[in-house]
Design a protein around this nucleic acid. Structure first.
Lengths: 124, 124
DNA sequence: ATACGACTTAAACCTTGGTTTAAGTCAAGC
DNA sequence: GCTTGACTTAAACCAAGGTTTAAGTCGTAT
């Protein structure tokens, strides 16, 4: 099986190495292997778990909630329902957040429209 | 003209008084008046400016960028183009952010779908 | 006239999510 | 065999965005 160094993993995921080390410290990479020199070895599975972590982070899930998810992944199949609940729940939170941002954006759009009108009037 | 105390303003805007004081310190309430006892007086105009601030904050504009916007508002009509540019720019940033979140949400939805399949299989 | 609640301030404190630093280890190429 | 680059660690540091604390000042109702 192919393994990636932290540098390669960082490059593939487009995040700094320091962030990967930080995530490990926070418990987000619990199953990470090491070579004989103590260097981290990222498997394809780790990378794809980190892609999921990226989706969660990008939708503003907190690191401690992501850790909970990872802990459930590590715990195995008996936690699939919890994971499903968590993700469904998170989905609703994200949808609400997107709605809220969209609503605020409408408020901003109104300002934009007013400003355009004002600049039009100034040209008359 | 009707004025609101900090408590009333906080209630109307649904944010803590401490946040309003913090915003003033950061330069987000530059035109705030005071009564003879030194208490802040929020006019209807201030409140509506704060609603705009709320839209900007809610779409993740930084406080220092919001301050720039407020400074331009205070400076008057000569800055309307700058404000318009800033808001148009911000709009694009927010749209990109929403897209990015929506994309991550699709990744999450795939996980959800897989988990549902897995629980279905477990029942067979 | 006094107690209460709502306000004031400056400064200290807090959390989140990292990044940076300093000192050290190791493998590989020259 | 030595240098170089990629890695290791723990701990310090940072920025953003507030919140909390402590001490004090008012205005008003009793």
């Amino acid at each position: 099986m192919k393994y990636y160094s932290i540098g390669e993993a960082a490059a593939r995921l487009k995040i700094p190495e320091s962030t990967l080390r930080f995530y490990e410290k926070k418990g987000l990479l619990p199953l990470i292997e090491r070579d004989s020199a103590g260097r981290r070895l990222f498997s394809e599975d780790q990378i794809s778990l980190l892609v999921t972590v990226g989706c969660l982070k990008n939708t503003n899930m907190s690191i401690s909630d992501i850790k909970q998810y990872i802990d459930w992944v590590v715990a195995g199949d008996s936690t699939i329902e919890q994971r499903l609940d968590m993700l469904n729940n998170h989905k609703q939170v994200v949808l609400a957040e997107i709605s809220s941002m969209t609503e605020s954006l409408e408020g901003i759009q109104e300002k934009i429209t007013r400003y355009i009108k004002r600049t039009q009037e100034a040209l008359r």
